[in-house]
Nucleic acid binder design. Structure first.
Lengths: 213, 213
DNA sequence: ACCTGAACACCGTTCAAGT
DNA sequence: ACCTGAACACCGTTCAAGT
């Protein structure tokens, strides 16, 4: 007498992601997910061999949310930037998952499709082999670094203080020791992650579109 | 009758870092560190208020290992690159700590000193305010992103396979679907983290030394 | 094929007690 | 001031048993 499965792998994935988004990484336990699904903890092991596999499911859920741009684009630079922006946005939408994404991104088939898309755009610059590899590494590292910096900075993992409080704290540093830190803390008041992403990306793209090293 | 303290905060810090370097992040528990020090678990709470504070100690130990370059430098670009390289090297020397560093770097006084040093070098480009902030974010994000990519890629968190195995797996992908992925996987065979760091950094620095956007 | 409870070996941390 | 053991509320996971 085969019973219909009580849950599905997809439900597992969605519940786990929702749990992390709501309560942070530390809240993501096998037992908590099981409770959320109304089953016994051990039931999950019918769908997932490990806690590690559950984490992978969460990462893949975020990766799947990347909406690759459709184009067409005038210059390959615009395409690279659009792809980078799409990844950045998806990752940023799930700040608590970022540490998981950074360490497990590569073990996902969908991320390989996205990588190939980015590489195709970068290859339009004429790069091949090692140069293409380095261009690829630069773009992906910058995107992930920016996403991470946003999480680690004002937001932090469990900071009590607001972003404005953090900036205020920086600005009240001894002026003779930290003049430039105080300068950018002031600039941060009227800045936004979006504007910083574009500025950083444009700096790199400017280097990428230079003819030679 | 005041007894001499059985351990010190410094010993705690060193033992914790050594433990993570040896056995990974998951092995870093209050109980394991206490055992390593030959004391009861609760003893640690005389030196640290929290597990979180222990993690912070580990991060600060790595941050303290950054050897800022002394100069002098011909161009500010060289100085920026040398500072970035110093951070990258220190972080890379402790791969298991990277997730901790990424999320807790900002809560360390020493890192502010290092940030100010980088900012001073970047300011020699003439940038101020928002432009300086974005230049700073670009460099630090790229450095941390590159360090993370190295950990997450071939090495992975607990990958069974070697870096060469990973590259071999990439190269045996369907050639019609992943031509560029296969191309850079081939290039990765003769590449090194060091050469990729320099190439990526040079791309960004090339953009940073452009006169205008 | 899928679900479950009991049990085991771990956690971080509180508390009350020791010196 | 510093150390400690017992206890509590959690973990992931194995195993044996149920349907």
């Amino acid at each position: 007498m085969a019973r219909p499965p009580k849950i599905t792998r997809l439900a597992l994935q969605q519940v786990a992601l929702a749990l992390v988004d709501r309560s942070g990484l530390e809240a993501l336990s096998m037992r908590a997910v099981a409770a959320e699904l109304g089953t016994a903890p051990m039931t999950l092991y019918n769908y997932v061999s490990d806690r590690e596999e559950l984490l992978l499911l969460v990462v893949q859920a975020v990766v799947a949310e990347v909406k690759l741009p459709t184009g067409p684009f005038e210059h390959w630079c615009d395409e690279v930037k659009a792809i980078a922006h799409a990844s950045w946005m998806a990752v940023r939408a799930h700040p608590y998952v970022i540490p998981l994404i950074l360490t497990r991104r590569s073990r996902s088939p969908e991320v390989m499709r996205q990588a190939e898309t980015l590489l195709r755009a970068l290859a339009k610059s004429g790069r091949r082999g090692h140069d293409l590899l380095c261009a690829f590494r630069s773009v992906t590292s910058l995107v992930m670094g920016l996403a991470q910096a946003e999480l680690a900075g004002p937001l932090a993992l469990r900071a009590q203080e607001s972003a404005d409080d953090t900036i205020a704290r920086f600005r009240s540093l001894p002026r003779d020791q930290f003049p430039w830190l105080i300068d950018i803390a002031g600039a941060a008041l009227t800045s936004s992650p979006e504007s910083e992403f574009h500025a950083a990306m444009d700096l790199l793209l400017s280097g990428l579109s230079q003819p030679e090293a």
